[in-house]
Nucleic acid binder design. Structure first.
Lengths: 332, 332
DNA sequence: ATGAAAGCGCTAACAC
DNA sequence: GTGTTAGCGCTTTCAT
């Protein structure tokens, strides 16, 4: 393989100084038009690429953005990653994705690696847990422009946060079901390990109260959220035979519950009312449409871009943005 | 924000030369044990991180791996990305994901950017089309260790390829449909821009031949693959009213076709037999189960790791690996 | 065992 | 309009 082509290669090739080459390639005004064109032509011919490391080392920064997610198969994270990646493509940023598995140590290591490559900014869905137990490393964010997504965990107090407020939509879901005649409305959601779990359950309760319904213990299923937990909870509700409607409070839970309904031959919408959480594309096209609590993805991604572009590190006080989840009623 | 901490900062702080610091930090034998420990302690306190750009510039390479995908919402790509990202996490690689949208120009630009950051290797699902029409840029792969995934498009002849052999499964799909009484079996797939498109169509034809069926021109829909292409083709087949069964030859195509069937009120399995491509989790639980040609994900990801570790650039002849797709019959 | 010098590729700051 | 110099952070080589 040929030795790599640098501005000096081109300079030597053309018998000019490497600075002229540099200037020509970055459209500096102080170059003869002919020279500039000649240089560009030759550079293209030789297959020159500007080594990013060199500019980075000079302190000119990088075009790297980090994204830290628990995983990338959950359709919400996948579509957020997709949107952010598309945005990065449009702005010629490069997106480094790290999976944290919701583990603090993994998250910490990924942050470290992003510092090493001098990422311009890092978008992170913070792992649950207390970061201060991580060995008191006060530096693991130094020089990093951090944007927290979905979950908030203040560390330096200077991280921006882009959050989702789903309380209104969850309460609305309960009230909608009540308005359409349901009195036994079940809830399947995360337990209180995460603040989002607590908040969603509280929103469900608020919906009940505002509908004049009283809480029935058997209709509330909470546990660490997962696909199978959603399925088990739905099956339990079905076999207990009390609930006439189900509201879900989590992405995986929603899919698990839906799976349980469909594979047991129940039709969401006719046999039992169902309101899911999140909005994978196939919700719109199965069983006449699955009602759901939609978490907006594009607005989150676009706001992320805005924050990326404005920069957070220089700001004294954290910027916090909240987007409303939305109740989408379809056939189920 | 404090100026960034380099080995010189630490050296000055400790009153020793920056070389000793460098050696200490990289566990070079020629350092006093006490010195080494002191240096490491001080480095941690000051929040030192080794700037990756500096090492990269010296020619020591990077730990960056690129992944070029059409998108990351398609569940197949998402789960591959997830597996690869997990592997990268385990080996302290950093994964840069670029979305190509199956567009050659976008792919080309992403490759360029990955060359700029001196990615160690690039895993790419090649976009359809003729790369030679891209302006004859013979350099856009220089210095890049390319691993083609799923689709193969020989350019330099030295790219490794990790492929799926789905010919058997596709033929089997046709034969299965014939065995269950179908005589008008349609095929929706990619056109011949990609070898995979040609191969799949050929496998479909082979299935027809081995079933004693003759090819009907109207039942074959090929075009550049996409969700909407799948949908349009399915609608065309429905309105022409000839086909009694559909076999899909692509991930997006399959979802697009399924979408078209479901939203037009057709039941895959009863109104028209349907065999999809790829195996997103919801295929198992809608409409009693969607039959499909399943592509293995984990084996692909693990083989990718193997190739990543061995390196391809130095190899004279391309390494090619093939994994078998599998026909999964469900209710549809 | 430790230090000094050189150089990776690039551009800002000076010459001229 | 063009060329020379210096330095970003790091490690290899060559002293000491």
């Amino acid at each position: 393989m040929a030795a790599r082509v640098t501005i000096k290669t081109i300079a030597k090739d053309l018998g000019i100084s490497h600075m002229t080459v540099s200037r020509a390639l970055s459209d500096h005004p102080n170059v003869q038009k002919d020279t500039r064109e000649l240089v560009k032509k030759r550079a293209a011919e030789l297959g020159y690429v500007k080594i990013a490391a060199a500019t980075a080392m000079r302190g000119d920064g990088t075009r790297i953005v980090g994204l830290l997610l628990p995983n990338i198969v959950n359709e919400f994270y996948a579509s957020f990653a997709n949107e952010l990646a598309r945005i990065c493509e449009a702005f010629s940023y490069q997106l480094i994705i790290h999976l944290t598995d919701d583990d603090l140590k993994t998250e910490h290591k990924a942050m470290q690696q992003l510092r090493e490559v001098q990422a311009k900014a890092v978008v992170v869905v913070p792992a649950p847990g207390d970061p201060h137990l991580m060995g008191g490393d006060r530096h693991h964010l130094d020089g990093l422009d951090v944007i927290q997504l979905i979950r908030q965990r203040s560390v330096t107090g200077r991280e921006a946060a882009i959050l989702v407020d789903d309380a209104g939509a969850i309460s609305a879901a309960v009230k909608h079901l009540h308005a359409t005649g349901h009195k036994k409305i079940a809830y399947i959601g995360a337990n209180s390990d995460l603040s989002s779990g607590r908040n969603r359950l509280e929103a469900y309760r608020k919906g009940l109260r505002e509908s004049g319904l009283s809480e029935i213990h058997e209709l509330i299923k909470t546990a660490p959220p997962s696909f199978s937990m959603g399925g088990n909870s739905a099956e339990a509700l079905l076999s207990e035979g009390v609930a006439t409607a189900i509201v879900c409070g989590g992405f995986e839970i929603s899919n698990g519950a839906l799976h349980a309904l469909l594979t047991s031959g129940r039709k969401p919408g006719s046999d039992i009312a169902f309101i899911g959480y999140g909005d994978p594309s196939f919700y719109t096209w199965i069983e006449g449409g699955i009602s759901t609590i939609r978490v907006p993805v594009s607005p989150l991604a676009n706001q992320t871009l805005q924050v990326l572009k404005s920069g957070t590190a220089d700001d004294e006080n954290a910027q916090i943005f909240e987007f409303q989840a939305e109740l989408v009623i379809r056939k189920s």
